[in-house]
Design a protein around this nucleic acid. Sequence first.
DNA 1: TTGTAGGCGTTATCAA
DNA 2: TTGATAACGCCTACAA
Lengths: 340, 340
Amino acid sequence: MAVTIRDVAKRLRLSITTVSRALDGYDDVADKTRARVIRAARDMGYVPSRAARQLRRQRADAIGYIIPGRAPYFTDPFSSEFIAGLGDAATSHNLDLLISTAPPDSDAELYVYTRWTQSRPVDGIVLSRLRLKDWRVKYLAQNDFPFVAHGHTHLRLDFPYIEMDSRAGFAQLVKHLADRGHRRIAYIGAPAKFTLQAERFTGYQEGLTAAGIAFEETLVAESDLTRTGGYQAAGQLLDQARHAPAAIICVNDLTAIGAMRAARERGRVIGRDIAIAGYDGTDESEHTDPPLTTLKQPIYDTAHRLVEMLLRRIAGEPIADPHVILQPELIVRQSTAFSV
Amino acid sequence: MAVTIRDVAKRLRLSITTVSRALDGYDDVADKTRARVIRAARDMGYVPSRAARQLRRQRADAIGYIIPGRAPYFTDPFSSEFIAGLGDAATSHNLDLLISTAPPDSDAELYVYTRWTQSRPVDGIVLSRLRLKDWRVKYLAQNDFPFVAHGHTHLRLDFPYIEMDSRAGFAQLVKHLADRGHRRIAYIGAPAKFTLQAERFTGYQEGLTAAGIAFEETLVAESDLTRTGGYQAAGQLLDQARHAPAAIICVNDLTAIGAMRAARERGRVIGRDIAIAGYDGTDESEHTDPPLTTLKQPIYDTAHRLVEMLLRRIAGEPIADPHVILQPELIVRQSTAFSV
DNA sequence: TTGTAGGCGTTATCAA
DNA sequence: TTGATAACGCCTACAA
């Protein structure tokens, strides 16, 4: 068994109260006593029991994140960078980060959220990849459980979030392509229930309108945010004999990377015969052939910042700016850097 | 405040003992009582408090993993797939997964491991990316703290692990290239302190010997397991006027992807002028241009299996096969599929 | 089959 | 400035 506060107290012939207070930095402890306590604690390798502390103080000093996806999804660079940001932020605030996994709108997802809010292994939760009518948001808000999110919903509920103005981003991307003479600009999106899809697709449409290009149903495909999904969707778009697109905008970089492969396999030279662009600005986009034009979002920093917001939320402190909207940065690379 | 066992008991006019036992499936509870308890618990949304349970049972029902890397560079697909496997396995065993981040051999790393072993928020730890003389292994073994690892060390300590026979894998890869007529086969590795580097580099050398090719110092470069690192290292190798390699074997896929870019930028056509291969078999390798030859390791499944081993370790049960060695699978794709 | 009671290791209240 | 004591919510010997 590990050494407990009682052991330290016994050795010093002090009460556990005093030891506890000395260690927690209360100022009603004699300096000399505190010094003795601190030394002894270090010598004996005493660290307070997490569980006991949690039970007594009724908080976990931990935050949680549930990776929204099924096994293949996880290898999404977005998730890993996001987790990295959460992990670092948590560590720097002396918090634990709890991770679980659950496919969106599955029983498993319901179960984890229920367990976490009831059993309270975490003080707050970070949400990502929101859905337009996200039951998680409803549920957490109803139960008054602290949470922050990456993105928003279409529910009439107020909560702190950070989101990218991907709508403007996609409009900008369309303009970029239209400026280079493209007219047949396709879009490969995600399932409609995701907020990100609603936003990006709307941005795409607005971009077309602004450029005076008519929207065409046949130039739109739905995919699942993965490379393979992008590969398949792009394949179908490209195989439409009369309607093959001259440019493809993808809902994220992974989709774009799949699309590039589909185009290559059909003998199209990307950055010459066809333009392809993505969204996220992942590391991978810089190393594709040719390098991929993308809208970069600061995933790591956003995660970091979300943790700060969540902590204020947990502490019940007001959040200066509870609805942060950031502009993605258009990074033009060779995959679209040509005119027709 | 969340609903406690006491609330459930009160509502049913039972003792908390009975409620506890009914819920935990003890067989000395009347079926009718159990049914009532279970219904009431569900209706009231009762979930046992994690902290109380931990304190009482003296275990955390959680396992921990510390991502070995520096922010924000650990968006390594290996890590994310590994975490996905750990997360899924943990969930399926009703465990929490704690994640932290710390650069190898940093103060932060020491601190996290100390805290986790003393404060016991986790019952066991999963280690990855081992070092030849890994202080973590020494530390955990000394403190008799349950752990399992992906890979081994050169320390004289016994612990359960799963590892890939990447040495044989790399030898096989060299043979594959030699069989196609390549002689000037370069190797881009990782820092020498990592076990994976020792293994893979040895495999490379053994492969050369077997193929009757002389080892050349100038064909070896050290990198940092990232795309950018691979890009730079490959650039240097390729710019050696008299010694430019005709094939490059990389310590992992990320490095290979960077190397591909470096080769392309120098006008080399991969899969015709030069062969490039990686290791890991990440999703990304399938979508590069051209698709990347690689040695595939089952990251997700390995993580899953490691959790099972760890659980036995924690329970003090014997592990049937504590030293699992798996063969990576050579996947030949276009990046090397040509003869000279 | 069900209930009583003690204690896991802390922190917080109150008294000395 | 320090100490005794009562929880926090749960599990489990033991008693009924």
